[in-house]
């Protein structure tokens, strides 16, 4: 069976990361920005499990790390959504570019 080289995973992960970053920068809706960020974190996870699979004796470390990233990402999404919710109530908008009172 042909082995897929680790570089393939890295390239996919990098592409995923770039897509996520693009989304985070480009979308104006705060929820969509948040999703872009989730995409970036998933790219990280892909990296971690790929390395864990390919490296000698690093299986546990990489997978544990990935589990932690997934957990933290959930918490991050929770607090992010809470902030967006409060913002929507207070300002009636969740368009990021419209929120720019603090500057200079």
């Amino acid at each position: 069976m042909a082995v897929i080289p680790v570089q393939a995973f890295l390239i996919v992960a990098a592409a995923l990361f770039a897509l996520g970053l693009f989304g985070a920068l480009r979308r104006t809706n705060a929820i969509m920005v948040l999703m872009g960020i989730e995409l970036m974190l998933n790219a990280v996870n892909l990296n971690l499990v790929a390395f864990a699979r390919y490296l000698q004796g690093a299986l546990v470390g990489g997978q544990v790390f990935a589990v932690f990233v997934i957990t933290v990402a959930a918490a991050e999404a929770a607090i992010g959504l809470a902030i967006v919710l409060l913002l929507a109530r207070r300002r009636r908008t969740i368009e990021v570019p419209e929120i720019h009172d603090l500057k200079g």
């Binding site: 970053l21 985070a24 920068l25 104006t28 920005v33 990021v96 570019p97 929120i99 720019h100 009172d101 603090l102 500057k103 200079g104």
Partner: peptide, 17 residues
């Protein structure tokens, strides 16, 4: 330089990127 702080969160992210 302080103009860089335009107030838009995504502009800050763009600067980082």
């Amino acid at each position: 330089v302080r103009r860089a702080a335009v107030g838009d969160a995504q502009a800050y992210m763009l600067t980082m990127a």
